[in-house]
Protein backbone atom coordinates (compact mmCIF):
# COMPACT_ATOMS: atom_id res chain seq x y z
CA UNK A 1 0.00 0.00 0.00
CA UNK A 2 2.72 2.48 1.02
CA UNK A 3 4.96 1.73 -1.97
CA UNK A 4 1.97 1.73 -4.27
CA UNK A 5 0.93 5.20 -3.12
CA UNK A 6 4.50 6.41 -3.32
CA UNK A 7 4.67 5.45 -7.00
CA UNK A 8 1.33 7.16 -7.67
CA UNK A 9 2.54 10.26 -5.86
CA UNK A 10 5.78 10.35 -7.81
CA UNK A 11 3.86 10.04 -11.08
CA UNK A 12 1.58 12.99 -10.34
CA UNK A 13 4.46 14.89 -8.77
CA UNK A 14 6.72 14.49 -11.80
CA UNK A 15 4.20 16.47 -13.87
CA UNK A 16 4.14 19.21 -11.21
CA UNK A 17 7.92 19.29 -11.43
CA UNK A 18 7.78 19.92 -15.17
CA UNK A 19 5.35 22.80 -14.64
CA UNK A 20 7.44 24.31 -11.85
CA UNK A 21 10.60 24.08 -13.98
CA UNK A 22 8.83 26.32 -16.48
CA UNK A 23 8.18 28.95 -13.82
CA UNK A 24 11.66 28.72 -12.40
CA UNK A 25 13.41 28.99 -15.80
CA UNK A 26 11.49 32.14 -16.68
CA UNK A 27 11.97 33.61 -13.22
CA UNK A 28 15.67 32.88 -13.56
CA UNK A 29 16.29 34.92 -16.69
CA UNK A 30 13.58 37.58 -16.30
CA UNK A 31 13.08 37.90 -12.57
CA UNK A 32 9.32 37.76 -13.05
CA UNK A 33 6.63 35.18 -12.36
CA UNK A 34 4.85 34.28 -15.54
CA UNK A 35 1.22 34.11 -14.45
CA UNK A 36 0.14 32.90 -17.90
CA UNK A 37 2.23 29.72 -17.77
CA UNK A 38 -0.66 27.41 -16.81
CA UNK A 39 -3.02 28.77 -19.46
CA UNK A 40 -0.31 28.67 -22.13
CA UNK A 41 0.36 24.96 -21.73
CA UNK A 42 -3.26 23.92 -21.17
CA UNK A 43 -4.15 25.74 -24.39
CA UNK A 44 -1.41 23.81 -26.17
CA UNK A 45 -2.51 20.54 -24.64
CA UNK A 46 -6.11 21.16 -25.71
CA UNK A 47 -5.01 21.63 -29.31
CA UNK A 48 -3.11 18.34 -29.04
CA UNK A 49 -6.07 16.58 -27.45
CA UNK A 50 -8.46 17.78 -30.16
CA UNK A 51 -6.18 16.37 -32.84
CA UNK A 52 -6.64 12.98 -31.14
CA UNK A 53 -10.38 13.14 -30.38
CA UNK A 54 -11.62 14.94 -33.51
CA UNK A 55 -9.08 13.99 -36.14
CA UNK A 56 -8.01 10.53 -34.99
CA UNK A 57 -4.37 11.46 -34.87
CA UNK A 58 -1.98 9.31 -32.82
CA UNK A 59 -1.06 10.49 -29.35
CA UNK A 60 2.51 11.27 -30.46
CA UNK A 61 1.16 13.91 -32.85
CA UNK A 62 -0.85 15.38 -29.96
CA UNK A 63 2.32 15.72 -27.90
CA UNK A 64 4.12 17.36 -30.78
CA UNK A 65 1.23 19.77 -31.39
CA UNK A 66 1.05 20.63 -27.70
CA UNK A 67 4.79 21.33 -27.60
CA UNK A 68 4.66 23.51 -30.72
CA UNK A 69 1.48 25.44 -29.83
CA UNK A 70 2.62 26.06 -26.24
CA UNK A 71 5.99 27.22 -27.54
CA UNK A 72 4.37 29.62 -30.01
CA UNK A 73 2.06 30.99 -27.31
CA UNK A 74 5.13 31.51 -25.13
CA UNK A 75 6.71 33.43 -27.99
CA UNK A 76 3.63 35.64 -28.38
CA UNK A 77 3.58 36.17 -24.61
CA UNK A 78 7.21 37.32 -24.65
CA UNK A 79 6.69 39.76 -27.51
CA UNK A 80 3.37 41.19 -26.34
CA UNK A 81 3.33 41.05 -22.54
CA UNK A 82 6.96 40.89 -21.46
CA UNK A 83 9.43 42.52 -23.86
CA UNK A 84 7.60 45.86 -24.31
CA UNK A 85 7.57 46.32 -20.52
CA UNK A 86 11.20 45.28 -20.20
CA UNK A 87 12.22 47.94 -22.73
CA UNK A 88 10.44 50.61 -20.72
CA UNK A 89 12.19 49.48 -17.55
CA UNK A 90 9.01 49.37 -15.50
CA UNK A 91 8.74 47.63 -12.10
CA UNK A 92 8.35 43.86 -12.18
CA UNK A 93 4.80 44.07 -10.82
CA UNK A 94 3.70 45.44 -14.18
CA UNK A 95 4.60 42.22 -15.99
CA UNK A 96 2.80 40.24 -13.30
CA UNK A 97 -0.37 42.06 -14.36
CA UNK A 98 0.35 41.87 -18.09
CA UNK A 99 0.87 38.10 -17.88
CA UNK A 100 -2.36 37.74 -15.88
CA UNK A 101 -4.02 39.67 -18.72
CA UNK A 102 -2.55 37.28 -21.25
CA UNK A 103 -3.76 34.35 -19.13
CA UNK A 104 -7.29 35.73 -19.05
CA UNK A 105 -7.30 36.17 -22.81
CA UNK A 106 -6.14 32.59 -23.30
CA UNK A 107 -8.70 31.18 -20.87
CA UNK A 108 -11.56 33.06 -22.58
CA UNK A 109 -10.14 31.98 -25.93
CA UNK A 110 -10.24 28.35 -24.81
CA UNK A 111 -13.87 28.69 -23.70
CA UNK A 112 -14.73 30.14 -27.09
CA UNK A 113 -12.78 27.58 -29.13
CA UNK A 114 -13.04 24.38 -27.10
CA UNK A 115 -15.88 25.05 -24.64
CA UNK A 116 -15.49 25.25 -20.88
CA UNK A 117 -16.29 21.60 -20.19
CA UNK A 118 -13.88 18.83 -19.48
CA UNK A 119 -12.77 16.78 -22.44
CA UNK A 120 -11.85 13.10 -22.06
CA UNK A 121 -8.36 11.96 -22.95
CA UNK A 122 -8.69 8.58 -24.71
CA UNK A 123 -7.08 5.68 -22.94
CA UNK A 124 -4.34 5.01 -25.48
CA UNK A 125 -2.28 2.69 -23.37
CA UNK A 126 -5.08 0.56 -21.96
CA UNK A 127 -5.40 -0.38 -18.34
CA UNK A 128 -2.64 -2.91 -18.56
CA UNK A 129 -0.63 -3.08 -15.34
CA UNK A 130 2.75 -4.42 -14.33
CA UNK A 131 3.47 -6.17 -11.09
CA UNK A 132 6.71 -5.05 -9.50
CA UNK A 133 6.98 -6.88 -6.20
CA UNK A 134 4.05 -5.63 -4.17
CA UNK A 135 3.58 -2.60 -6.39
CA UNK A 136 1.20 -2.53 -9.29
CA UNK A 137 1.97 0.09 -11.92
CA UNK A 138 -0.33 1.10 -14.74
CA UNK A 139 1.42 1.27 -18.09
CA UNK A 140 0.27 4.85 -18.51
CA UNK A 141 1.78 5.86 -15.16
CA UNK A 142 5.05 4.23 -16.10
CA UNK A 143 5.10 6.20 -19.35
CA UNK A 144 4.30 9.48 -17.58
CA UNK A 145 6.94 8.97 -14.93
CA UNK A 146 9.43 7.80 -17.56
CA UNK A 147 8.92 10.79 -19.85
CA UNK A 148 9.03 13.29 -16.99
CA UNK A 149 12.17 11.83 -15.43
CA UNK A 150 14.00 11.51 -18.75
CA UNK A 151 13.09 15.12 -19.60
CA UNK A 152 14.41 16.35 -16.27
CA UNK A 153 17.67 14.44 -16.62
CA UNK A 154 18.16 15.77 -20.15
CA UNK A 155 17.31 19.31 -19.05
CA UNK A 156 19.70 19.10 -16.11
CA UNK A 157 22.50 18.00 -18.42
CA UNK A 158 21.60 20.57 -21.06
CA UNK A 159 21.53 23.50 -18.62
CA UNK A 160 24.80 22.52 -16.98
CA UNK A 161 26.89 21.32 -19.89
CA UNK A 162 25.88 22.93 -23.19
CA UNK A 163 26.81 26.37 -24.40
CA UNK A 164 23.20 27.57 -24.63
CA UNK A 165 22.43 26.11 -21.21
CA UNK A 166 25.38 27.96 -19.71
CA UNK A 167 24.26 31.16 -21.45
CA UNK A 168 20.87 30.74 -19.75
CA UNK A 169 22.56 30.33 -16.36
CA UNK A 170 24.81 33.34 -16.99
CA UNK A 171 21.82 35.46 -18.02
CA UNK A 172 19.87 34.26 -14.98
CA UNK A 173 22.69 35.28 -12.68
CA UNK A 174 23.30 38.71 -14.22
CA UNK A 175 21.82 39.88 -17.51
CA UNK A 176 24.16 42.84 -17.83
CA UNK A 177 27.27 40.74 -17.26
CA UNK A 178 26.06 38.12 -19.71
CA UNK A 179 25.56 40.77 -22.37
CA UNK A 180 29.04 42.27 -22.04
CA UNK A 181 30.46 38.76 -22.41
CA UNK A 182 28.89 38.66 -25.85
CA UNK A 183 25.70 36.77 -25.06
CA UNK A 184 22.62 37.99 -26.93
CA UNK A 185 20.45 38.08 -23.84
CA UNK A 186 17.22 38.77 -25.73
CA UNK A 187 17.77 35.56 -27.69
CA UNK A 188 18.44 33.71 -24.44
CA UNK A 189 15.19 35.06 -22.99
CA UNK A 190 13.17 34.02 -26.06
CA UNK A 191 14.78 30.56 -25.96
CA UNK A 192 13.98 30.20 -22.27
CA UNK A 193 10.36 31.30 -22.55
CA UNK A 194 9.75 28.95 -25.48
CA UNK A 195 11.54 26.09 -23.70
CA UNK A 196 9.55 26.65 -20.49
CA UNK A 197 6.24 26.79 -22.39
CA UNK A 198 7.04 23.69 -24.45
CA UNK A 199 7.98 21.73 -21.32
CA UNK A 200 4.60 22.83 -19.97
CA UNK A 201 3.02 21.51 -23.17
CA UNK A 202 4.41 18.07 -22.41
CA UNK A 203 3.36 18.33 -18.74
CA UNK A 204 -0.18 19.29 -19.80
CA UNK A 205 -0.53 16.21 -22.02
CA UNK A 206 0.90 13.96 -19.29
CA UNK A 207 -1.57 15.38 -16.77
CA UNK A 208 -4.38 14.79 -19.24
CA UNK A 209 -3.30 11.16 -19.39
CA UNK A 210 -3.09 10.90 -15.58
CA UNK A 211 -6.59 12.26 -15.01
CA UNK A 212 -8.00 10.95 -18.33
CA UNK A 213 -9.38 14.46 -18.95
CA UNK A 214 -8.46 18.08 -19.49
CA UNK A 215 -10.45 21.19 -18.48
CA UNK A 216 -9.55 24.74 -19.56
CA UNK A 217 -9.69 25.87 -15.93
CA UNK A 218 -6.88 23.43 -15.12
CA UNK A 219 -4.55 26.11 -16.44
CA UNK A 220 -5.18 28.06 -13.28
CA UNK A 221 -5.31 25.21 -10.75
CA UNK A 222 -2.21 23.51 -12.13
CA UNK A 223 -0.54 26.88 -12.46
CA UNK A 224 -1.04 27.44 -8.74
CA UNK A 225 0.42 24.02 -7.96
CA UNK A 226 3.43 24.87 -10.09
CA UNK A 227 3.76 28.18 -8.24
CA UNK A 228 3.56 26.41 -4.88
CA UNK A 229 6.33 24.04 -5.98
CA UNK A 230 8.34 27.03 -7.23
CA UNK A 231 8.15 28.72 -3.83
CA UNK A 232 8.72 25.49 -1.91
CA UNK A 233 11.78 24.60 -3.98
CA UNK A 234 13.24 28.08 -3.84
CA UNK A 235 12.49 30.53 -6.62
CA UNK A 236 14.95 30.14 -9.47
CA UNK A 237 16.25 26.72 -8.41
CA UNK A 238 15.85 24.01 -11.04
CA UNK A 239 16.74 21.07 -8.76
CA UNK A 240 14.36 22.60 -6.21
CA UNK A 241 11.52 22.58 -8.74
CA UNK A 242 12.26 18.98 -9.72
CA UNK A 243 12.39 17.55 -6.21
CA UNK A 244 9.63 19.63 -4.65
CA UNK A 245 7.23 18.78 -7.48
CA UNK A 246 7.68 15.14 -6.51
CA UNK A 247 7.21 16.02 -2.83
CA UNK A 248 3.92 17.85 -3.51
CA UNK A 249 2.65 14.93 -5.59
CA UNK A 250 3.48 12.42 -2.88
CA UNK A 251 1.89 14.54 -0.12
CA UNK A 252 -1.29 14.89 -2.16
CA UNK A 253 -1.59 11.21 -2.95
CA UNK A 254 -0.95 10.18 0.65
CA UNK A 255 -3.54 12.63 1.93
CA UNK A 256 -6.10 11.04 -0.36
CA UNK A 257 -4.97 7.49 0.38
CA UNK A 258 -5.22 7.95 4.12
CA UNK A 259 -8.74 9.19 4.05
CA UNK A 260 -8.71 12.94 3.70
CA UNK A 261 -9.42 13.25 0.00
CA UNK A 262 -11.45 16.44 0.30
CA UNK A 263 -8.58 18.00 2.25
CA UNK A 264 -6.02 17.10 -0.41
CA UNK A 265 -5.05 20.63 -1.39
CA UNK A 266 -5.48 21.99 2.13
CA UNK A 267 -3.06 19.45 3.58
CA UNK A 268 -0.58 19.91 0.75
CA UNK A 269 -0.58 23.69 0.93
CA UNK A 270 -0.69 23.65 4.74
CA UNK A 271 2.50 21.60 4.78
CA UNK A 272 4.08 24.02 2.33
CA UNK A 273 3.27 26.91 4.65
CA UNK A 274 4.82 24.98 7.54
CA UNK A 275 8.00 24.28 5.58
CA UNK A 276 8.24 27.91 4.52
CA UNK A 277 7.93 29.04 8.14
CA UNK A 278 11.09 27.09 8.86
CA UNK A 279 12.87 27.79 5.56
CA UNK A 280 11.46 31.00 4.03
CA UNK A 281 13.85 30.86 1.08
CA UNK A 282 12.48 27.45 0.07
CA UNK A 283 14.13 24.07 0.44
CA UNK A 284 16.74 24.67 -2.25
CA UNK A 285 16.73 28.46 -2.35
CA UNK A 286 19.60 30.67 -1.37
CA UNK A 287 19.17 33.27 1.34
CA UNK A 288 18.71 36.69 -0.21
Amino acid sequence: MFLQQLVNGLTVGSTYSLIAIGYTLIFGVLGIINMAHGQVFIFGSFVGLILVTNFDMPIAVAFLASIVVSGILGLILEFTAMRPLRKKNVPHLASLISTIGFATLLEEGMHKLFGADSRAVPDTFGSQAFQLGSVQIRAVDLIILGIAVVLMVVLHFWINKTKVGKAIRATAENTETASVLGINTNMVIVTTVVLASSLGGIAGMLIGMTYSALIPSMGMTLGFKGLAVLILGGVGSIPGAMICGLILGVIEVFTVAYGASSYRDAVAFGLIILILLIRPQGLFGRKA
Binding site: R169, A170, E173, A178, L181, I183
Partner: peptide, 13 residues
Amino acid sequence: LGQMTVLENLEMG
Protein backbone atom coordinates in the same frame (compact mmCIF):
# COMPACT_ATOMS: atom_id res chain seq x y z
CA LEU B 1 29.31 34.90 -12.28
CA GLY B 2 29.44 33.62 -8.71
CA GLN B 3 27.29 30.55 -9.27
CA MET B 4 29.43 29.35 -12.16
CA THR B 5 32.87 27.80 -11.90
CA VAL B 6 36.06 29.64 -12.82
CA LEU B 7 36.30 27.47 -15.93
CA GLU B 8 32.72 28.30 -16.92
CA ASN B 9 33.38 32.00 -16.40
CA LEU B 10 36.30 31.74 -18.82
CA GLU B 11 34.19 29.76 -21.29
CA MET B 12 31.51 32.45 -21.19
CA GLY B 13 34.17 35.01 -22.08
